[in-house]
Design a protein around this nucleic acid. Structure first.
Lengths: 163, 163
DNA sequence: CGAATACCTAAGTAAATTAGTCAACTATAT
DNA sequence: ATATAGTTGACTAATTTACTTAGGTATTCG
């Protein structure tokens, strides 16, 4: 599990898609403008997102990208994984460095920590974040009528508690 | 909050320190060998860790680094922060791009997510991980007598449940 | 056709990592 | 005391990897 700007951009872009899903396909040019991400970079990110079956594309004028499956079934962990596609992760694969020594122990501990964060992000869907943005928008208007708490955040106590 | 290999190296090294704290100061050369991290890189990382008051140094023969304060009071988040020293984090500081538009919204959402992970890692101390490694070592020996659950993991349900 | 768009490949820039040098400090041996 | 060796501390440079930008080709719609 790696958490870099690349993943942030991917999540941001996917969130933009989720926020505009009622407008049909969303062009990368639109996302580029709204989210201040270069078009070229978006293209590269979406190539990976498409390979990961998270989005589908429509070519030609009026085309763009759409979420594949609802925003409730797309989780942050999937997005981050799709653009990072880390195949190595643990250093000790074939090398003779790591024959059950302490190196493997610390590697294991980090991997485990990483896995826990992964589990955490597996519990948060795009829909959760959209709902949260609704809460924020409403609270900013001082018109706090609906307090939306997504049912998909159930296994994520931290998110729920911060809403 | 950024989670990269740099942070992993730092945590790994600090863990090594924690695992050998009864031997007096630990030299970077030892850590370099055990954890397969280049000595130069360790020096750079420990310069930051020292600046962050997470370790103290002893020069001369037999010298090395020691944890400053017990492993119970050093948390993963501190280590990652010390070596990353991310000052920018949000893109929209002075630029006119981000006047309350959607850009700021998605930035906000990511920052919030990031903050939650930070909170999570603030709840995990080096001692927690060491305890966990004890559990693993014991379970590997199929001699599971002591099941150590650190009291410092209390606010981290995920870690506790995975032990 | 021509414009809007996805899709692809390469090049450039920034950051992480490794490598190396030299100085300062301190325990130990001489 | 003095030398010697192990060690941190503070740099600079080279290399590798991650990120960003640039330019092109293919597809679809009006």
């Amino acid at each position: 599990m790696r958490l870099t700007t690349k993943g942030r951009y991917a999540v941001t872009a996917m969130l933009d898609l989720a926020l505009h899903k009622d407008q049909g396909p969303v062009s990368l040019a639109d996302i580029s403008q709204r989210q201040a991400i270069s078009l070229s970079y978006l293209e590269q990110l979406f190539a990976k997102l498409r390979r990961g079956s998270l989005v589908s594309s429509v070519r030609g004028p009026g085309g763009g990208y759409e979420l594949q499956g609802g925003s409730e079934s797309i989780f942050i962990a999937q997005i981050v994984d799709a653009v990072n596609e880390s195949l190595d992760s643990t250093k000790c694969k074939g090398a003779g460095d790591c024959q059950g020594g302490e190196t493997c122990l610390t590697h294991y501990l980090w991997e485990d920590l990483s896995e826990q964060i992964h589990t955490f992000l597996e519990g948060i869907s795009l829909a959760d974040l959209v709902a949260k943005s609704e809460v924020k928008r409403i609270s900013e208007k001082q018109d706090r009528k609906h307090l939306i708490v997504s049912e998909h955040a159930e296994d994520s106590r931290i998110l729920a508690s911060s809403i």
